[in-house]
C-alpha cells in the first residue's frame, strides 16, 4: 500500500552540524507512528521537514502523491490544510485568547460566534471547561496549555496530526490523560499520527509502529509489539534507559 507520508534519504545540516544523514521513513494511512531518540538527534527537524518549515538539503518528502518539500503556492496551502501540529512548547499565540487560538484556522471562514462555539466544543473534547475560553494562554498551567495546543491541532479535523513531545514536562497523571486523548483522537478521527517522545509509557500507549532516530538515520523501525523482542542494541539500551551501550551518553 502506498504510504501516507514518506521520507526518502533526507539530509539536513546546520553549519558544520550534520543533523539528518539520510532519513528513510514511511507512515501508512491511519497509522500511529512514534519516533523515539535522544535529545538533539533531529526528531523535531524531521517533522519540520515534512511540514516544509525546514528545507532538507537533499532527499525527498512525499505526502500522498505530492512532493511536500517542493510544494509552493496553492499546492502548499492545500497540503498544509491536511495537517494539525502540536508543538513541543505549545506555541500558543499569547496575544490571543484561548478560544481564538483553538479556532485560529477556522476564524476566516466562520462568524466569531460560530468559531467560538466550535472552539468551546473542541476544548471540551480535551477536558477543558468553557470558562477557560476567554483566558489568555499565560493564565493557564503547562498541562492546560498542552491541552489547548492539542485542541488547536485537532480543531479542523486534519488528516495527519503531528505531536512533538506531548507529555514532556507534565506529571505522570497529566501525561496519561494526554496519551489517552491522543489515542482517542487518532482512533476516532481515523487520522494518521506521527508523535515524537522519549517517554516509553507514551510509546506503548500511543504507538502502532515505532521508529528510532539515532546518528541522523532511522536505526530501527517496527511494530510496537516487537520492541522488547527485536534484539536491536540501540532499542534495548533506549527502552531500558542504560548509560552503557552503542548510544554514547554525553557527560
Amino acid at each position: 500500500m502506498k504510504p501516507k507520508i514518506e521520507l526518502r534519504d533526507v539530509h539536513k545540516s546546520f553549519g558544520a552540524k550534520h543533523v539528518l544523514r539520510g532519513v528513510n521513513l514511511s507512515v501508512q494511512k491511519s497509522e500511529s507512528m512514534v519516533i523515539i531518540g535522544g535529545s538533539g538527534t533531529g526528531k523535531s527537524i524531521t517533522i519540520k521537514s515534512i511540514l516544509g518549515l525546514v528545507r532538507p538539503d537533499k532527499g525527498e518528502v512525499w505526502v500522498d502523491d505530492i512532493r511536500a518539500d517542493k510544494a509552493r503556492g496553492k499546492q502548499r496551502d492545500a497540503l498544509l490544510n491536511k495537517f494539525g501540529m502540536l508543538f513541543q512548547g505549545g506555541a500558543l499565540f499569547d496575544s490571543l485568547k484561548v478560544w481564538e487560538n483553538v479556532a485560529f484556522r477556522m476564524r476566516r471562514r466562520m462568524s466569531a460566534n460560530d468559531a467560538r462555539d466550535m472552539a468551546i466544543e473542541k476544548l471540551r473534547r480535551v477536558g477543558l471547561g468553557p470558562d477557560n475560553a476567554d483566558l489568555f494562554p499565560a493564565e493557564l498551567s503547562g498541562g492546560m496549555q498542552k491541552r489547548v495546543g492539542l485542541a488547536r491541532a485537532i480543531a479542523d479535523d486534519p488528516e495527519i496530526i503531528f505531536f512533538d513531545e506531548p507529555t514532556t514536562g507534565l506529571d505522570p497523571i497529566m501525561s496519561d490523560v494526554i496519551n489517552d486523548l491522543i489515542r482517542e483522537v487518532v482512533v476516532e478521527m481515523g487520522a494518521t499520527a506521527l508523535t515524537i517522545t522519549h517517554d516509553m509509557t507514551s510509546v506503548r500507549k500511543i504507538a502502532d509502529k515505532v521508529a528510532m532516530l539515532h546518528n541522523g538515520v532511522i536505526q530501527w523501525t517496527g511494530p510496537v509489539g516487537d520492541l522488547d523482542t527485536c534484539g536491536d542494541p540501540y532499542i534495548d539500551q533506549f527502552i531500558h534507559g542504560r548509560a552503557e551501550g552503542p548510544i554514547e551518553a554525553l557527560r
Partner: peptide, 16 residues
C-alpha cells in the same frame, strides 16, 4: 519571542 517559541512556525502550519 514568537520565533523562539515556535509561534511563527505554528502560524505557517495553521495556513497563515
Amino acid at each position: 519571542t514568537m520565533r523562539v517559541t515556535e509561534q511563527i512556525d505554528a502560524l505557517t502550519t495553521l495556513s497563515t
